[in-house]
Nucleic acid binder design. Structure first.
Lengths: 234, 234
DNA sequence: CGCGCGCTTGAACCGCTTCAATCTCAGTGG
DNA sequence: CCACTGAGATTGAAGCGGTTCAAGCGCGCG
């Protein structure tokens, strides 16, 4: 039952092949509930720059990032923008149905999400109590990430912020790149990183350049950094 | 069945008198579940400076602030401290059982909390599905507050931070203080506010003094501010 | 009444910002 | 295949908001 790729909602080829299945809510489903989810859930491709959620607008689905990455942001009345987080495969958005989203979520690259209408999730949860526990746990995980972000913004220097950011992305989507090296993709432009770190674009650029110059980064390009493997490595 | 006040866990005099009952998880309980909760839950007084949760230590209960206030904080390895939030009546801590708390929660004054062991909540939730929904909703509320804090730290000036903070406390525990005036208690020392706002103690003090000097605060003392009522009022 | 902690005030300094110029590279068309 | 183009990134230099260090004030408690 092959399906053609398209950007409109599609049924997944098969959840069996899903890269994030065991991290998603699907892991809590028994065979019966899972069959029902497979029938109702849908997978969607999202083009770079397109939003799956917009600040202030209502939301009625839970999104799970299967592939790609997203930027979460909030805008102040005067136009200042704060990037509040990034989503990578396995991350959730829209844990709860809301009348007004607290943030905007936009794709940083061609990405794929599964989405589950909350209306329907409610029914599944009635049979699979683990689903709600997982939503609670995920909510707490997001909250803890936000607290780490708060510490970064409240107490860290520019250099510490940049290093923390690189580690953060490494944990989410870093890959081994030869002996003792890690390849860390940077799918977002510098401005997004700066807006996440509470720094100006120029300060970020200077800091990255200085780390490279001092040999603390193996390599640095627009779209990736290569760093040493292991803890405390920059 | 009167009970004497004491700092050890006690049964509440009566949940009927609880000031935050309708905001707590109790609102989701039917008469039968509520009777069970009343039997198992306990109320506790917490002295100023005492912690109900410590960063890195395990937690097995949900706490609901009934009276007083708490400071949430995280400490960096080198001793720098970031205050990540404050709890006021109706707020929750420990939404989920964890092996290692992400933050420390300490009383800013003589306070009162109700606590619900998660082990037991699990049983109640089986009969009252609304309980888990409320935990999910509360988790999202905390997450959104954290995002507002992130915007504050990432994008706002010292003066904007201080004003945002005063509004925040007003919303939680402010009271009318004569025509067109609001009395906003400040149960925490200046250092805690500064550590929340990502500013130095001296900068906070200077900023508050300047607001007072410019007539934008009706009054300012160690433990409270008087501001105008209405929106955009400082 | 007096002691001390918490807060305020002062003045010099510095890390990050601001403004501006230059560089780089992916995409486009000749 | 290469020159052209423009958005994104880097670099430079001056300025400033917040920090740092240090001294003085005053409320609350014994």
């Amino acid at each position: 039952m092959a399906e053609k790729a398209c950007t409109a909602p599609t049924r997944p080829q098969s959840c069996d092949l899903c890269a994030v299945r065991e991290h998603s809510i699907c892991a809590d489903l028994g065979p019966r509930e899972f069959a029902q989810v497979e029938k109702t859930m849908a997978r969607r491709h999202v083009d770079r720059g397109k939003a799956i959620m917009a600040e202030g607008e209502p939301n009625d689905s839970l999104y799970v990032v299967v592939d790609g990455s997203f930027r979460l942001s909030k805008i102040l009345e005067d136009g200042r923008r704060q990037v509040t987080g990034f989503l990578f495969p396995g991350d959730f958005a829209g844990v709860r149905a809301t009348g007004s989203n607290a943030y905007t979520a936009e794709a940083l690259e061609q990405s794929t999400v599964c989405f589950f209408p909350h209306k329907f999730l409610e029914d599944v949860a009635a049979d699979a109590p683990g689903v709600k526990d997982r939503l609670i746990a995920r909510g707490q995980t997001e909250y803890h990430k936000a607290q780490d972000h708060i510490v970064l913004l409240g107490k860290k220097t520019a250099e510490e912020r940049v290093i923390s950011f690189i580690y953060l992305v490494d944990r989410a989507v870093g890959a081994d790149a030869g002996p003792g090296k890690r390849r860390v993709p940077l799918p977002m432009p510098r401005q997004d990183i700066a807006d996440y770190l509470g720094l100006r674009l120029e300060t970020l650029s200077r800091t990255l350049t200085a780390l490279k110059r001092d040999g603390r980064l193996y390599d640095l390009t627009r779209h990736e950094v290569i760093i040493a493997a292991g803890p405390d490595r920059i």
